[in-house]
């Protein structure tokens, strides 16, 4: 009996806080018919917003994936001094509000900031342009890969890597043939979370982008914009696409992952 109560509570909670609101987005997006929805989504500025979001994700995700794996190796294997410090600060982005991240970038790259004047002299636009938006997104989505990979690395230990070395493998060969295949699901899962975070980033990007329609407006910024301008079906339409991407990715992950673990 208790089992059913727990199950009911867990499902009820998920329904109330996650699935309920998400399904509302779904219904509201179709409120004015598929025609209106399509009109919103095919708007050039909307298309541009999605493109921009994708471009940012395509830059931020690979960089964070590589950085996350390197970071995790540093934290777990501790092959260089300062690894402990890395471990401590890698979680920082989870603790800091994205708005604060945005503001700190302003202080760095603004006209009177530390690096701002240097970039201005060299004709590079950082704020209110793609670079600052990418930097902000990288910052907020930084910990996910490292956080997924660290426990897996701990669990597998380094005996397999030692064995590979005694068999004549170089560090590079050991990494590609032994370490990476052993942690691949953690990396993939981390990448999925990072991607989701990148696509959904709002606060930090809102501060540094300037939110210029058709130029520096990402999908999430456009949702907010549409909502503020009483274009509700527009807001829900774009939200629907963003939510759909995440759901599809997560379902794909769930379907793939257990099979692979059986083989291990």
């Amino acid at each position: 009996m208790r089992k059913y109560i727990l199950r009911f509570l867990a499902l009820g909670y998920l329904l109330a806080v996650l699935l309920g609101p998400l399904s509302m987005v779904f219904f509201r997006a179709f409120d004015k018919g598929t025609g209106a929805l399509w009109k919103t989504l095919s708007d050039p500025n909307t298309v541009h917003a999605f493109k921009l979001t994708l471009i940012i994700a395509l830059i931020a995700v690979p960089l964070n994936a590589v950085f996350g794996v390197v970071c995790a190796l540093a934290i777990v294997r501790r092959r260089f001094p300062g690894a402990g410090l890395v471990n401590a600060i890698v979680d920082l982005p989870l603790a800091i509000s994205p708005v604060v991240v945005g503001l700190s970038l302003f202080l760095l790259y603004g006209r009177t900031g530390w690096f701002g004047p240097w970039f201005a002299r060299h004709g590079m636009q950082i704020l209110f342009a793609l670079p600052s938006m990418v930097i902000a997104t990288i910052f907020v989505s930084l910990p996910f890969v490292a956080r997924e990979v660290v426990p897996t690395l701990r669990e597998i230990g380094d005996e397999q890597e030692q064995a590979a070395r005694t068999l004549g493998a170089s560090s590079w060969q050991t990494f590609w043939r032994i370490t990476l295949p052993s942690i691949r699901w953690a990396v993939i899962y981390g990448v999925v979370l990072t991607t989701a975070r990148c696509l959904g980033e709002y606060g930090a990007v809102a501060v540094v982008s300037g939110n210029i329609e058709g130029k520096t407006q990402t999908a999430t910024l456009r949702v907010q914009d549409a909502y503020e301008n009483f274009n509700q079906s527009g807001a829900y339409g774009i939200s629907l696409v963003l939510a759909a991407i995440s759901v599809v990715v997560l379902i794909t992950m769930t379907v793939l992952r257990p099979k692979e673990e059986e083989a291990l």
């Binding site: 005996e159 397999q160 590979a164 005694t166 493998a169 043939r177 083989a263």
Partner: peptide, 28 residues
């Protein structure tokens, strides 16, 4: 280790879990 060319067997096998038995043996 790589240069010494010694064979080493670990107490807890250190099997390459993502490789088949053949692939394990063929590794070196």
């Amino acid at each position: 280790t790589q240069q010494r060319g010694v064979g080493f067997v670990f107490q807890h096998y250190a099997a390459f879990k993502h490789m088949s038995v053949r692939e394990n043996i063929a590794f070196g």
